[in-house]
């Protein structure tokens, strides 16, 4: 059984079925890809998983437990972290403060719920401040730690979002186009980081339009089109898939 599963997940906006019967399995220890053309419903699927949007049908199962009725912040407390396609950083605060807020919020609710161990530290439990420093450093943000995030370029702001999401020590991390705005070197580092995180036991669901990156880091790739999963498989299977080619390039 996968850590995070969706079964028949659907949402309807007016008469439009934006996500239709989506089944996903997000396993611990690997990066799972979710790709598809514009408007295919990828971000909407994220919103349904973390409860920002209510599903009109289907179930979200986390660690064997249906969580579809929980509100967003309870789902986060179970261990679902995410980033946003359209940046949702705390623009008026510095990079360090952004991560600190995440860690502080976690510390506040950690008293009531089970929290997974730190992902990037090796074994030992670090004090809050050090954990924040560690995250800032591992995301390559040490040089800009005291810069207001509102003043950062997109790529770095995306890394801040990842660091902040990691600060709540999630068990599954939903990344929404983390590489957009990054240059090739940064994208390379991000790929390595994702693989490291996965290796330490995190489940990652990656929405990304940088297809080479997806092909490089993902163990499994799901292709979404018109709100439906039209294909799933290993990267090489997906690349060879005619249906996928048609979905991306259209027609014949």
């Amino acid at each position: 059984m996968a850590l995070l599963e969706t079964r028949g997940l659907s949402v309807r906006f007016g008469g439009h079925l934006a996500v239709s019967s989506v089944d996903l399995d997000v396993e611990s220890g690997v990066v799972t890809g979710l790709i598809g053309p514009n408007g295919a419903g990828k971000t909407t699927t994220f919103n349904l998983i973390c409860g920002v949007l209510g599903a009109t049908g289907g179930r979200v199962i986390f660690d064997g437990r249906p969580i579809g009725s929980l509100s967003t912040h309870y789902r986060a407390r179970l261990g679902i972290g995410r980033t946003f396609q359209r940046l949702e950083v705390f623009g008026s605060m510095t990079v360090r403060e952004n991560v600190l807020v995440g860690a502080e919020i976690r510390q506040a609710w950690a008293r009531f719920s089970h929290v997974s161990p730190q992902l990037l530290a090796d074994g030992e439990e670090l004090p809050l401040g050090e954990e924040v420093e560690l995250l800032v450093e591992r995301l390559g943000l040490a040089a800009v730690a005291d810069v207001r995030v509102g003043e950062l370029p997109t790529g770095q702001a995306r890394l801040v979002e990842i660091a902040r999401a990691l600060a709540i020590r999630p068990r599954v991390l939903l990344l929404d186009e983390p590489a957009s705005g990054l240059d090739d070197t940064e994208t390379g580092h991000l790929g390595e980081l994702m693989q490291q995180l996965a290796a330490s036991g995190l489940a990652i669901l990656l929405v990304e339009h940088d297809v080479p990156l997806v092909m490089k880091v993902c163990a499994q790739v799901n292709v979404l089109d018109f709100g439906q999963v039209i294909a799933r498989g290993t990267p090489s299977e997906i690349q060879a898939n005619e249906v996928v080619q048609a979905a991306y390039l259209g027609g014949s």
Binding site: T72, H73, M93, V101, E104
Partner: peptide, 24 residues
Amino acid sequence: GRWGRRLAAMKDSPVACATLGLSL
């Protein structure tokens, strides 16, 4: 302090706060 950072964060992005586990 913590409380103020949390309010500023909430003002900047309520949805991000919720996905960090904060009850708005």
